[in-house]
C-alpha cells in the first residue's frame, strides 16, 4: 500500500507534500485545487477536519489558509500513531476570496465564519457568512497584522488609560 504522501503526489500536479515533523505532513495546494484536494483526502479516510485557520503573511502579501485533517478510523478501527495533514493554500491579501469547503466538511462552517470576520476572507457559497464573535463593526478585520490593537482600544474606550510601550 502506498503512503498518503505518494498518493497525493500521484493524483495532483504541482502539489507540495512535505513531512514537517513526526506525525505531521504539510500539503501545499493551489487555491483552485483546494476543494478537489480536500475531497480526495476525505475519501482517503481523512474525515476529521480539526481546524481551519489562517495566517496573515503580510510581507508576502498573502493569507495562508490552513486545514488540519486527521483520521478517526483506519480500516474501521481506531488506530494509534495517526498522522495529521496540514493542508495549506494561499489567497492574495488584495483579493481574499476562496470557495467554501462547507460542502466537503460541515465542520468548516463556523471556522470559515470566524475567518471571514477576523481576516475578511470571503468564502463564496458559504451558507451564512454573518459575524460570529464581534459586537461592533470594525473597519479592518482585527486579526490582520496591520490592525493595531492598542490604537483601537485607545480610540474606542477613552476611559482606559493608555500604557506606555
Amino acid at each position: 500500500m502506498s503512503s498518503i504522501e505518494e498518493k497525493i503526489t500521484a493524483n495532483f500536479d504541482g502539489i507540495e507534500v512535505r513531512k514537517i515533523e513526526e506525525g505531521r505532513i504539510e500539503v501545499k495546494t493551489k487555491k483552485e485545487a483546494l476543494l478537489s484536494t480536500l475531497n480526495f483526502l476525505k475519501d482517503e479516510g481523512y474525515g476529521h477536519l480539526g481546524l481551519v485557520s489562517c495566517v496573515d503573511r503580510i510581507e508576502e502579501g498573502i493569507f495562508e489558509l490552513v486545514y488540519i485533517l486527521s483520521r478517526y478510523l483506519v480500516g474501521g478501527e481506531v488506530a494509534v500513531d495517526q498522522a495529521s495533514l496540514i493542508v495549506k493554500t494561499e489567497v492574495p491579501r488584495g483579493n481574499p476570496t476562496l470557495v467554501t469547503s462547507v460542502k466537503v466538511f460541515e465542520t468548516a462552517e463556523p471556522y470559515e465564519r470566524e475567518l471571514h470576520e477576523m481576516f475578511g476572507i470571503v468564502f463564496s457559497g458559504h451558507p451564512r457568512l454573518t459575524p460570529l464573535f464581534l459586537e461592533r463593526d470594525i473597519d479592518l478585520p482585527p486579526m490582520r497584522k496591520d490592525f493595531d490593537t492598542r490604537k483601537y482600544v485607545e480610540e474606542e474606550f477613552e476611559s482606559i488609560p493608555p500604557v506606555e510601550d
Binding site: I20, E21, R24, E26, G50, L51, S53, V55, V66, I68, S70, S84, I86
Partner: peptide, 20 residues
C-alpha cells in the same frame, strides 16, 4: 521559523493548537 499543530485530549475532547 516554523509551524506546528499539537493536539491532546482535554476533558472535553480534542484540544489543538496551531502555532506559527
Amino acid at each position: 521559523e516554523g509551524e506546528t499543530y499539537v493536539r491532546l485530549e482535554s476533558s472535553r475532547g480534542e484540544l489543538g493548537l496551531y502555532l506559527a
